[in-house]
Simulated assay, not measured.
Amino acid sequence: MKKSGFAMLTIFACIWVTGAYTQTVEELQTNYINALGGKEKINGLKSIVMETNMQAMGMELPAKIWIVYNTATRQEIEVQGQKIITFIGKDKGWSINPLTGSTEAQPLPDEAVKSAAGSLSAGGELTNYKENGYAATYEGKDTVNGAAVHKIKLSKGDVLSTIYIDAASYHLVRNTTKATVAGQEVEQTTNYSNYKKTPEGFLFAYNMVVSSPMVGEIKATITKIDVNASLDIKELENPH
């Protein structure tokens, strides 16, 4: 992704440093995948339907999310008796927000679609970052809520993510994304906690807190997950 910043004393020194960083990312990726149950387990996750209880601006906002991994996702949030609907595919997306007077699907900016691409990968961006065209660098250790974490930066075009992996459990505990949307840089941070397994043995964070200057803080708790349900992409993509 971005230049490492190390002085290039010799070609061999540069190769050694780059190789060490690549190896560290790959080792963390392996530990991360193993913490989720292993590559075979993750590859067995084809789709999910989630129901969540969201809290924002003093309101309770029931939501439902459909994900067909590597293909598309749809989200519906109930707000004051109306639904905000968002659809994102691999290369396009749209949103309907009646609270802004829009009752028809409005296309999402390409940058917004790209920044959400990580949600289409089972296990998240780190599981298949190379195959999905991301570059990665290890940024060393840090702390999140008093616990030691590893920092990894992922980049693809003008989309930048910094993910924080717990040094003990290797679970994802934080993800900060930056993207330029409509000419403005937008940053969003999501914190993950309360990891639990479904009856099928798939591991998910049941609590999330999303923070950004545009929407403030949104707390979400998963209340139900259906794994590998049969989903029709055309139905998910249909605005009505």
Rank of each mutant, 00 (worst) to 15 (best):
A136D: 06
V215K: 02
H150C: 03
T30Q: 12
A148Y: 08
L236K: 05
A20V: 11
T10P: 12
A147M: 06
G58N: 13
S102H: 10
I11R: 08
A148M: 12
V181A: 07
S161W: 10
M59L: 15
R74G: 07
P62V: 06
T127L: 13
G5R: 06
S115P: 06
V25Y: 07
I33A: 01
A205C: 09
D166F: 04
G183K: 14
G124P: 03
N128E: 11
K2Q: 14
V181S: 00
D158F: 13
A229P: 02
K219H: 14
G44D: 15
K178D: 05
E217G: 04
A167L: 03
G133Y: 04
P199S: 06
T18P: 00
E217M: 11
L9A: 07
E125H: 11
E131H: 00
I88P: 02
K64Q: 12
N132F: 13
K224Y: 12
E27D: 11
N194T: 12
T18Q: 08
G38L: 06
L9N: 14
T73I: 06
K224E: 12
K156F: 11
A136V: 00
A72I: 12
P109S: 08
T18Y: 05
T190M: 12
G124L: 05
T176H: 09
L203T: 00
K156L: 10
K46R: 11
A179T: 04
D232M: 07
I165W: 00
A205W: 04
G89D: 03
T176R: 12
N194P: 05
G216W: 05
S121K: 07
V209K: 13
A105D: 05
P109G: 09
F204G: 03
G118T: 07
V186F: 15
Y129K: 01
M208S: 14
Y195T: 00
M59I: 10
A135Y: 14
D158R: 13
I88H: 04
M208H: 08
A117Y: 07
A167N: 00
M50N: 08
Y206Q: 08
A168E: 03
I218W: 09
H171A: 01
T137G: 01
L160R: 07
T73G: 10
G157H: 09
L45Y: 11
G157S: 10
A116Q: 13
T127M: 10
